[in-house]
Nucleic acid binder design. Structure first.
Lengths: 209, 209
DNA sequence: GTCTATACAATGATAGAC
DNA sequence: GTCTATCATTGTATAGAC
C-alpha cells in the first residue's frame, strides 16, 4: 500500500527521499478522493507532514507532482500486463487471470487506482493534460492478444477483437466502479461471473458446455 | 438542445427567467468540461453573459446552481425511463429500445449527460454531496424489470437480475465513455451489438439462433 | 533539505447604487 | 433585476534564514 520508497526510489540515503515518497502517497490519496482541482497544495503537505517549500523542492509544482504519480502508475501497469501475457491456459482462463491481476493491483494500490480511474472517467479538462486513455489502450491490447490466441485455438467464436476488448473492459471497469461506490458489498468474483455470462450467452437454450 | 426556458420554467414574463436558464446552461457545459471544483463562478457568468450578482440572485450560491441542474436531470431521466417501461417486445428488443432512448437523451442533452457521468465516475468528494448513484439505480431498476418480463416469457435464461443489470449497464456506460473520449468514432450501434454478443455468448459452438 | 514568513493572483460572495 | 465596486479567504508559489 505505501510507496515503499526503498524499492522505488534510488536515493543514496533513504531519509533523503522520505519526504518525496510521503508526498506522492499523500497527494495520490487526496487526488483520488477530491480530484486534482479539488485538492490544495496546503492539504497535500499537511497530510504528508511537511511544509510547502518541501513540495516545491522535490517537484516543480502541483502539476509536476501529479505527473510523477502517473508515470509511476504507468510502470506498474506495464509490469502487471507483461506478466499476464506470459501466462498460459485457455482464453477464458487468461481473461480471469487478467482480472485477478488487475484486482490484486487495485487492492494493493487502491488510492492510485482510484485516482487514475477518476481521471479516465472524469471531466476532460478537470486536470492537467495527459494521455489518460493510454491505460485503457494497454488493457485493450492485452485483451485482444489473449482473444486472438484463443481464436487460433478455436476456443472462442469469431468476432471483432476490438469489440471483445470493449466487452471485457467494460465488465471489469464497471465492477471496479461498483466496488468503489459500494465498498460494503465488494465482490472480487463478480467479473469472473460476468465474463462467464458473456461467454455462455444469456439467450435461452444457448450453449453446450 | 438549449434549456427551452419556456417549457421548463414557469416565469410570468419569459425574459425574467432568461438569465436563470442561460446560467443553468452555461454552468452545465462548464461543469461537464472542467468539473465542479475546476469551474469558477466568474467563468460561469462570463459564459452566460451576465454578472456575478445575477447568479447569486437566482441561486443561493455555486452549490445551489449545481443542485438545480441535478434536479432537472432527475426529472428528465424519470420521464425517459417510464416511457421505456411502457414499450413492448422481447427482452432483447426492449433492452435495445432502452439503449436508444438513453442515446437520444444523451445526444439531446450532451453537456448535462457528460456532467452527470463525470460525477458518477469521478472523485467521491470532488463536488457537493449528492446521491449521484440514484441515476444508476433507476437504470438498474428498469433493466431488471425488463429482464424479469423476459424471464416470465422464457426469452432469457435464468440468472441473477442484479447481475444482468450490471452487465447491461456496464456495456451502455462503457459505450458512452468511448463516445466521449473518441467522438470521431462515435458508434450508436455498438451497445446493440455488445448486448447481442452477451446474449448469444462468445464461446465457440454456442447457441441456436 | 527544511523551515518561517510572505507575495500575489484567483476565488466565492456581497453591499449598495440604479 | 442588474450593475460596479469591493471584501475576506484561499490558492499557488517563493525568498531567505537555518
Amino acid at each position: 500500500m505505501a510507496l515503499k520508497a526503498g524499492k522505488r526510489f534510488k536515493g543514496r540515503k533513504p531519509e533523503e527521499q522520505d519526504a518525496k515518497a510521503v508526498l506522492l502517497e499523500a497527494a495520490t490519496a487526496l487526488f483520488a478522493q477530491k480530484g486534482y482541482a479539488g485538492t490544495s497544495v496546503r492539504e497535500i503537505v499537511e497530510r504528508a507532514g511537511v511544509t510547502k517549500p518541501v513540495l516545491y523542492y522535490y517537484f516543480e509544482n502541483k502539476e509536476g507532482l501529479f505527473r510523477s504519480i502517473l508515470e509511476w502508475a504507468k510502470e506498474l501497469q506495464k509490469e502487471m500486463l507483461s506478466q499476464v501475457l506470459e501466462s498460459g491456459g485457455t482464453a477464458m482462463e487468461r481473461f480471469i487471470h487478467l482480472w485477478q491481476s488487475v484486482y490484486r493491483g487495485v487492492t494493493e494500490y487502491r488510492d492510485l487506482f482510484n485516482m487514475i480511474y477518476n481521471l479516465i472517467f472524469g471531466p476532460p479538462e478537470g486536470s492537467p493534460n495527459y494521455d489518460f486513455d493510454q491505460f485503457q489502450r494497454e488493457m485493450a491490447k492485452t485483451i485482444k492478444a489473449i482473444y486472438r490466441d484463443g481464436l487460433a485455438r478455436g476456443e472462442v467464436r469469431e468476432a471483432d477483437p476490438d469489440e471483445i476488448a470493449v466487452l471485457i473492459l467494460s465488465l471489469m471497469d464497471y465492477s471496479l466502479h461498483l466496488d468503489r461506490i459500494h465498498p460494503e458489498a465488494i465482490d472480487p468474483e463478480r467479473p469472473e461471473r460476468l465474463i462467464q455470462m458473456a461467454f455462455e450467452g444469456l439467450a435461452a437454450g444457448g450453449l453446450a458446455h
